[in-house]
Design a protein around this nucleic acid. Structure first.
Lengths: 216, 216
DNA sequence: GTCTATATAATGATAGAC
DNA sequence: GTCTATCATTATATAGAC
């Protein structure tokens, strides 16, 4: 899918970045070592420093690369013949391909903000179509809904291991992906609440101002 | 809410655990140091070892404590006069209180499995009520839906910073919590897909067997 | 561009005194 | 129960050769 070419064809710099993405993803930023990354890339630790300087700069390069990749994928998807609809959600999980673990960690640590924001942007575009067909006016801004929606779409990726365990199949496997799609389809076509229930809850919600003095 | 008593009232052991939860949450397990935790707890590094032994054992103690706290909160909520319904979701975000960061990291790293599983269990109970009112039979098992639902419910907590940024308010603030509740209410009362659309997508989904030979 | 070797700092673990 | 002092390990950062 993305940059799935032969590792031998890549420059040392690219191989290092690729190895860093993998090692950071597998062991986490702190636990991953420059030496380990160098070894995985088939170069020396000295070369890593030569190309990227400090460890953090290497991580920054990884983040930058992923944003570029996401924008690329996004453009591809939007240029595709049939608009993706739900598949937007699949994009979030699948697009990062082998880098899912890295993305999950980066996001959890509050990093890779442009990546998240791009996803929100895509979600908002998608929500715009949905809002047109909607009978009642939304009670909150589209961007707010897109933000929470993006977080939810990413959750499966981020909590990959736990979801796999709960589902009983590895999400990375075809069977896992298939089951996940079916679950998503069911979940996204069956609201937890009726509009009436939501309205009732909403009415019982303390006004934003009065919450200031809220106490438990 | 939970264990919000004066730090001075806590035993050294509890203070250490509290400090560990905070430090692990703020800096991550690897980056957090025994020394830093000891300092935050107002004790010596030697005492940390005396009580918990190795660093990993300290983390395990933190995980155990949170499961205990979750079960406790769950029992409280279930014993409450009016059943929580959606509030189940708020439980996930709010219950862990000051430990949200820790939980987010632990979960992302594939740890704290019992905690996730407990949440799935709670979600399944809640889904059982919903399924009773549902016209069409679910296409996937309740546990599968509860699993993905749990991941989604946790996503806001896990991606706390990004969601806060996207919403324009700190989720920890009363304003943030209020906005989140409104967004959730809107999202959970408006399905992304109609049952017809979902059925169509489902029909177009490759059969589980045929996917084996799937190729891109 | 790439490698080897070394310096320096920080950390987890430990032992022993009070 | 609590502390101080020390050991052994490990990783980053650096310098310098090829």
């Amino acid at each position: 899918m993305c940059s799935q070419r032969d590792p031998d064809d890549l420059t040392a710099r690219a191989r290092i970045r690729e190895a860093a993405l993998q090692q950071f993803g597998e062991h986490g930023f702190e636990r991953a070592t420059i030496r380990g990354i160098a070894e995985a890339a088939g170069v020396s630790s000295g070369l890593v420093r030569h190309h990227f300087g400090a460890k953090e700069a290497l991580r920054d390069a990884c983040d930058e690369y992923l944003v570029k990749a996401l924008v690329q994928i996004n453009d591809q998807v939007r240029a595709a013949p049939n608009p993706p609809d739900v598949n937007y959600l699949a994009v979030a999980s699948a697009a990062f391909g082998p880098y899912q673990r890295y993305v999950a960690r980066a996001l959890t640590e509050g990093r890779a903000a442009p990546l998240f924001d791009k996803l929100v942007e895509l979600g908002a575009q998608w929500l715009a179509d949905l809002d047109a067909k909607r009978p009642d006016p939304p009670t909150v801004s589209r961007e707010a809904r897109a933000t929470v929606g993006a977080a939810m779409a990413l959750s499966v990726s981020v909590l990959h291991e736990h979801v796999s365990r709960g589902l009983g199949v590895d999400l990375s496997s075809p069977e896992g992906g298939d089951l996940l799609a079916r679950v998503m389809l069911d979940l996204y076509s069956h609201p937890y609440l009726t509009p009436e229930e939501a309205a009732e809850y909403l009415a019982h919600l303390p006004a934003p101002e009065s919450r200031k003095a809220h106490d438990d």
